[in-house]
């Protein structure tokens, strides 16, 4: 996989003494959607801000398409579009004015055709002459995305892109991000919504306390860490587990009505059929059963908990 952003041994200590990033090594692949997960204060925004030039890097190296972000900042930054977490936007300007400002700032001559296509794509064309102060929160968020795309970046950073956006708009945003990826843009998003990462990402990185604890393909991560559980609702409540079943990863609910079997989806033999045979052998009948797979959220919570 060709890497478009390379981060090597990056650390950052703020003047307050806070160690925000601790020896980060990360490669972002060209054309992927990379989701960076982590609790508040984990270092997500600091990492993004360093790559984009908003925070001065501490130790280590970051290159964007082989351009060092400090030594060759023009080449590096020209490739990047950033959608910040906060709705920071010049409120008294019109949508079109602020778009043209963004494009010019990134050193591109005006291109009304392209700007129109971006605004249409984000359903903002009708609002082009509207002052931003009159727009709704969701629209402002889209204006920020439009501004980030104004200079035709190859890499797009979305810092909490769907914070404060309703469900329908969130779907629309996801579709837009996919279209961008299909057009060749590499996307890095940070999010609190595990659902979002699960839905969108090709790869997932988990950052906690300024360190990357996991970088993995989403599917691999979910398979690797994903546990499946089989819940059996029993015909007759049990007081305790029969001794013969002691070796199994079984748990009995407090009321003794539900038996939960945890197994690994990766394994050839999950042990389900053997368990069921044993149960009938001991005359334990069940009236219902259902299996469930742990979501990325469960994985994430367990990862963060393990670390801390």
């Amino acid at each position: 996989m060709e890497s478009i952003i390379t981060i090597r041994n990056l650390s950052k200590t703020y003047s307050t003494g806070l160690l925000a990033l601790n020896n980060i090594n990360l490669d972002i692949h060209k054309g992927e959607i990379f989701a960076l997960l982590g609790p508040n204060g984990a270092g997500k925004t600091t990492l993004i801000s360093i790559i984009c030039g908003i925070v001065t890097p501490g130790e280590g190296d970051v290159t964007v398409d082989k351009h060092d972000i400090v030594l060759n900042f023009r080449a590096a930054r020209s490739m990047i579009g950033l959608v910040p977490q906060e709705l920071s936007i010049a409120t008294f300007e019109s949508v079109l004015t602020t778009m043209n400002f963004s494009r010019g700032l990134f050193g591109k001559p005006s291109n009304p055709v392209y700007i129109e296509s971006v605004l249409r794509d984000l359903s903002l064309w009708d609002k082009r002459d509207e002052r931003i102060v009159n727009l709704s929160g969701g629209m402002k968020r889209r204006v920020l995305i439009a501004k980030a795309l104004a200079h035709e970046p190859k890499i797009l950073f979305l810092d909490e892109p769907t914070a404060g956006i309703d469900v329908e708009q969130r779907r629309g945003m996801w579709n837009m991000v996919r279209r961008l990826r299909d057009s060749g843009v590499t996307i890095i998003l940070t999010t609190h919504y595990i659902e979002e990462a699960e839905e969108m990402a090709d790869r997932i990185g988990v950052i906690n306390d300024g360190q990357i604890s996991v970088i993995e393909e989403k599917t691999v991560l979910m398979n690797k860490l994903g546990k499946k559980q089989l819940a059996l609702t029993l015909q007759h409540p049990l007081k305790s587990l029969p001794d013969e079943l002691a070796g199994y990863p079984l748990e009995l609910s407090q009321d003794g009505e539900v038996l939960v079997f945890t197994f690994d989806v990766q394994k050839e033999h999950t042990g389900i059929s053997e368990l069921l045979r044993k149960l009938s052998q001991f005359g334990i009948d069940f009236k219902d059963l259902h299996s469930s797979q742990s979501s990325l959220e469960d994985i994430f919570v367990s990862l963060v908990r393990d670390k801390s």
């Binding site: 030039g53 023009r74 930054r77 906060e86 990134f106 050193g107």
Partner: peptide
């Protein structure tokens, strides 16, 4: 004002000296 409103991020992240 851009510092106050936060819009300075755009200038800082732009390829400008």
């Amino acid at each position: 004002f851009p510092k106050f409103s936060g819009t300075i991020y755009e200038v800082l992240s732009a390829p400008v000296s």
